[in-house]
Write a protein that binds this DNA or RNA. Structure first.
Lengths: 126, 126
DNA sequence: ACTCTTTTTAGAACAATTCTAAAAGGAGGC
DNA sequence: GCCTCCTTTTAGAATTGTTCTAAAAAGAGT
C-alpha cells in the first residue's frame, strides 16, 4: 500500500465514516500539501475496487465514501446533508424475494432528519 | 396548460413511460423545432410540481421522467440502460416500519437485466 | 544503474442540469 | 384595439462533481 493511498484510507477510517471526496481531499492535504484532487479520486477508486471502502452514489451528485465496506443502508439528512447509517435488517434478502425482476444490486438512500438536527430542529424551523 | 408544456406531457404519456430529458427534447423538437432544452426542463419541473409526472433521479446523473405519478419502484437495466417499473408491494410501509430513523422519503433504484436483454443475452455476452 | 509498472500531477474536458437576463406571448381590463 | 402584468420561452453561460489525458515522478525488481 502506497503512502498517499494509505493516507486517504486513514483519513476516512478516522472520520465519522461518510465523507465526500472534497472533504477527504481537504483533510489529506494537511499531511500532503501538494496533493491533488485527482489523486484522491484515483485512490478512492482503488480502495473501493480492493474492497477496503464503499462508494455511495447519491442522486444529488455528491457521492460519499464509507469506511465500512460491509453492506448496510444509509440515510441522508435533509437538513444538514450528512449521511448516516440506517438499520433495515436484511433488506437485500427481502428485495430479492419480493421484486418481480432479478435484483443484481440496488441503490437506496433514505431521506431523514438526523438525530443532531432533530434535537435542534427549532433553530432551523423544520 | 400552455402549448409546449402540453407537448412535453403528451410526448411522455405516449412513450413507454421512462424518458430522459434529452430524449424528450428530441421528440418535442419534431413538433416545435425552435424548442430549447431549458424549456423542456422548465416544463418537466412544472409538471412534476403539479403532480402530473414523476422525476426519478439516478446515481448516474441521468434522470428519468415517469408518466405515472403514483408511487412505485424502478429498476435500471445494467445492459441497455432502460428504466423499467418494478413491483415490490408496499415497500414504503415496510421501510417506515423497519428503519431505525424517520423516513421522510427514499430513492431506490434496483439494478437488473430487463426482459428484453435477458432474452437476447447471448448477443451481448452477459 | 536500468527497465517496467504504478502513482501522481496539472489542468482540461465532460455531461446533465440549473441559472440568468432579456425577449416573446397571452389574458384581462379599459 | 391597446396597455399592463404575469408567465413562458429563449439563448447561452455557469455550475458542479467527476473523469480523462499526457507527462512527470516514484518504486520495485533485476
Amino acid at each position: 500500500m502506497v503512502q498517499k493511498r494509505a493516507a486517504v484510507l486513514e483519513v476516512l477510517r478516522s472520520s465519522e465514516g461518510h465523507l465526500q471526496a472534497d472533504e477527504i481531499f481537504r483533510r489529506v492535504k494537511q499531511y500532503y500539501p501538494n496533493m491533488v484532487l485527482a489523486t484522491v479520486y484515483n485512490n478512492l477508486h482503488a480502495l473501493t475496487n480492493d474492497g477496503y471502502i464503499r462508494h455511495i452514489k447519491t442522486a444529488t451528485g455528491a457521492d460519499f465514501y464509507d469506511k465500512t465496506p460491509t453492506p448496510h443502508e444509509h440515510a441522508l439528512c435533509v437538513n444538514c446533508g450528512k449521511l448516516i447509517d440506517a438499520d433495515l435488517g436484511d433488506l437485500a434478502a427481502l428485495l430479492h424475494e419480493r421484486a418481480d425482476v432479478p435484483v443484481l444490486s440496488y441503490d437506496l438512500i433514505l431521506h431523514t432528519v438526523c438525530p443532531d438536527c432533530d434535537s435542534g430542529c427549532n433553530e432551523n424551523n423544520i
